[in-house]
């Protein structure tokens, strides 16, 4: 492909400090994100998958500087975003947008659709008052809504329509990069497909780069260029879509893929799932060594002690696993 990296993420760490106990007498650290490095290439859809609490949303938030990174770098246009305060971050916000999961709570109920979409245009001074209406109309058309929706309020819209409005708002300042944080998870199946197709059309039209955070692996398989699998705040595996789904290397990726149900009754009844025992350990006290060793079917002695290195096992196929990397 030879695409240039749009964003370079280097050793990103995010720890949250929390207070536990009935009176907050115990301090503790949530290891939400530990030592994550990856490049996001121009024009690609990079998906991050994993179970809840694995840090995939935290990655999106920290890249956009919505969470302040504990350490590490996010380099965009030669600038380390983690070093910027909110004011100096502002010009970059135009290029870097986000669409959240819940279209109900991300729209101000007292603002009309037109006001919500117009606000970022106004804020970044991208249009005069006279041009504003035309811009809003164009954006609504882009996301497949009739222009008359500009005067409606969020409560008058269905979930799918609201998500279209949120996407129009993210597009308003002509971004380069959009984080889709579970952007389709709250929608019904028949609506999900509509929104995915819309995102793909917009990507083609405007040359957008997506970081697609999702837990539905079948959807991810259909829309991604590359896929990263996260477990308890660390990247377990990162590869091109086909490599990840056809020749997964990490035992966690294999287990995750095996848990996905398919719409084929005979196949579903007969197949043997590789079921992971137990739950994800607490990110307050992640296991030593490889974080997956407590649930891993092929865990060895070394996995309990040593953190596996993030290594390229095949060209473009990175994995953190002692068994695969043969350390």
């Amino acid at each position: 492909m030879g695409a240039q990296p749009l964003l370079k993420i280097e050793n990103l760490v995010k720890h949250f400090h929390v207070r536990l106990g009935a009176f907050g007498e115990r301090a503790a650290t949530v290891h939400a994100l530990d030592d994550v490095s990856l490049d996001i290439l121009e024009g690609e859809t990079l998906s991050l998958v994993g179970e809840s609490g694995c840090g995939k949303s935290t990655t999106g938030f920290t890249i956009l500087n919505l969470h302040r990174a504990t350490s590490g770098k996010v380099v965009y246009k030669g600038q380390d975003l983690t070093a910027l305060d909110e004011k100096r971050m502002r010009p970059f916000r135009r290029d870097l947008q986000i669409v959240f999961q819940d279209p109900y709570s991300t729209l101000n109920p007292r603002m009309t659709v037109g006001e919500a979409i117009g606000e970022p245009i106004f804020f970044h001074k991208l249009a005069t008052k006279a041009e504003l209406e035309k811009k809003v109309t164009a954006l609504l058309t882009d996301v497949g809504l009739p222009p008359r929706f500009a005067s409606r309020y969020p409560h008058e819209l269905s979930g799918g329509q609201r998500q279209r409005v949120v996407i129009a708002r993210a597009l308003a300042c002509q971004p380069k990069f959009i984080v889709c944080d579970e952007a389709i998870s709250a929608l019904d199946v028949s609506i999900q497909a509509q929104i995915i197709n819309l995102l793909l059309d917009l990507q083609e039209k405007y040359g957008l780069t997506y970081l697609f955070i999702a837990h539905d692996l079948a959807v991810v398989r259909h829309i991604s260029t590359r896929v990263g699998v996260m477990y308890l705040g660390r990247l377990a595996e990162l590869a091109s879509r086909d490599a990840l789904f056809e020749t997964p290397l990490h035992p966690y990726t294999k287990a995750l893929l095996s848990a996905v149900p398919e719409t084929d009754p005979a196949h579903e009844r007969s197949r043997k799932r590789q079921i992971l025992e137990g739950d994800v350990p607490s990110p307050l006290a992640p296991p030593a060594g490889c974080r997956f060793h407590t649930r891993c079917p092929i865990a060895m002695e070394v996995c309990r002690r040593v953190v596996p290195k993030w290594k390229e096992a095949r060209p473009g196929h990175l994995v953190a696993c002692h068994a695969v990397n043969g350390e």
């Binding site: 179970e51 809840s52 837990h215 692996l217 287990a255 995750l256 095996s258 848990a259 996905v260 149900p261 799932r273 079921i275 992971l276 739950d279």
Partner: peptide, 10 residues
Amino acid sequence: DVTIQAQIVD
């Protein structure tokens, strides 16, 4: 999550 979902279905 899908892994837990598979456990519950089984």
